[in-house]
Amino acid sequence: MTDLARLSAILDGLGVAWEPGAREGETVVTLPGEHKLRTVVSLHVGARALELRAFVIRNPDERHEDFYRFLLRRALRLPGLGYAVDAAGDVYVTARVPLGGLDEQTVDELLGGVLAACDEPFDDLLRIGFWTSIRREWAWRVSRGEPTTNLEAFRSELEAEDGAG
């Protein structure tokens, strides 16, 4: 059995939906979230290791130092995973696991870690790095009677600001 076939069997055993990726050796998994709608995870089987990459959030608009400090502090609690930033400043979670250690428990822990790294801090990352945009979007939607469903996580803070202003 090839390492790619072993990964597919592991994902099937975990009940995780997957599909072949665009690159040779790549498998793509989409994980549902509570704060972030979904997290797309690329699992690439290389010659010696499984490489994982998942997009977390785009480059923040503001408070860069606070934003990246928050991520670095969270990174201390991410076993086997790390945050990375690409040339555009977009944030990813990455991991590398030797193929010899590729088993159901490892993959399950990796995918659980990805959710912890991408989904759990998502609202906090938006507050830190995108608050001005969120306030503008809220004001625009409220002024036009548009739905504010996508801003529900921030409703109490935004309404408090509205009341204070």
Rank of each mutant, 00 (worst) to 15 (best):
residue 2 T to N: 15
residue 3 D to I: 00
residue 3 D to S: 12
residue 3 D to F: 04
residue 4 L to Q: 11
residue 4 L to W: 01
residue 5 A to G: 09
residue 6 R to M: 04
residue 9 A to V: 01
residue 12 D to H: 08
residue 14 L to I: 05
residue 15 G to K: 02
residue 17 A to D: 13
residue 18 W to V: 00
residue 18 W to F: 11
residue 19 E to G: 14
residue 19 E to I: 09
residue 19 E to Y: 06
residue 19 E to F: 07
residue 20 P to T: 14
residue 20 P to Y: 12
residue 23 R to K: 12
residue 25 G to S: 05
residue 26 E to V: 03
residue 29 V to K: 00
residue 30 T to H: 04
residue 30 T to G: 01
residue 31 L to W: 03
residue 31 L to T: 02
residue 31 L to A: 04
residue 33 G to V: 08
residue 34 E to W: 04
residue 35 H to N: 12
residue 36 K to D: 01
residue 36 K to V: 08
residue 36 K to G: 00
residue 37 L to W: 14
residue 39 T to N: 05
residue 40 V to N: 07
residue 41 V to T: 05
residue 43 L to R: 01
residue 44 H to F: 10
residue 45 V to N: 00
residue 46 G to W: 08
residue 47 A to M: 08
residue 48 R to P: 00
residue 51 E to S: 13
residue 51 E to T: 12
residue 51 E to F: 04
residue 52 L to T: 10
residue 54 A to N: 04
residue 56 V to L: 08
residue 57 I to S: 01
residue 58 R to N: 11
residue 59 N to C: 15
residue 63 R to D: 12
residue 63 R to W: 07
residue 64 H to D: 10
residue 64 H to R: 15
residue 65 E to S: 11
residue 66 D to S: 13
residue 67 F to I: 03
residue 67 F to L: 04
residue 69 R to Y: 06
residue 70 F to M: 09
residue 72 L to R: 12
residue 72 L to P: 00
residue 72 L to I: 05
residue 73 R to E: 14
residue 75 A to T: 05
residue 75 A to H: 08
residue 75 A to M: 15
residue 76 L to G: 10
residue 77 R to S: 14
residue 77 R to W: 11
residue 79 P to I: 01
residue 79 P to K: 11
residue 81 L to E: 04
residue 81 L to M: 09
residue 86 D to M: 08
residue 92 Y to H: 14
residue 93 V to N: 02
residue 94 T to A: 11
residue 97 V to L: 15
residue 99 L to C: 09
residue 103 D to W: 02
residue 104 E to T: 10
residue 104 E to H: 03
residue 105 Q to L: 13
residue 106 T to F: 02
residue 107 V to E: 05
residue 107 V to Q: 03
residue 109 E to W: 13
residue 112 G to F: 06
residue 113 G to S: 11
residue 113 G to Y: 10
residue 113 G to P: 09
residue 114 V to D: 01
residue 115 L to R: 13
residue 115 L to N: 05
residue 115 L to P: 00
residue 119 D to N: 07
residue 120 E to A: 14
residue 120 E to M: 07
residue 121 P to I: 05
residue 122 F to P: 01
residue 123 D to R: 08
residue 123 D to V: 13
residue 125 L to D: 00
residue 125 L to K: 04
residue 129 G to A: 05
residue 131 W to P: 01
residue 131 W to H: 05
residue 139 A to W: 06
residue 139 A to G: 05
residue 141 R to A: 11
residue 141 R to N: 06
residue 141 R to P: 02
residue 142 V to I: 11
residue 142 V to N: 00
residue 147 P to N: 06
residue 149 T to Y: 09
residue 151 L to I: 09
residue 151 L to P: 04
residue 152 E to T: 14
residue 152 E to D: 14
residue 153 A to N: 07
residue 155 R to E: 15
residue 155 R to L: 10
residue 156 S to K: 12
residue 156 S to D: 15
residue 157 E to N: 03
residue 158 L to M: 07
residue 158 L to C: 05
residue 159 E to D: 11
residue 159 E to C: 06
residue 161 E to L: 12
residue 162 D to S: 15
residue 164 A to H: 08
residue 165 G to Y: 02
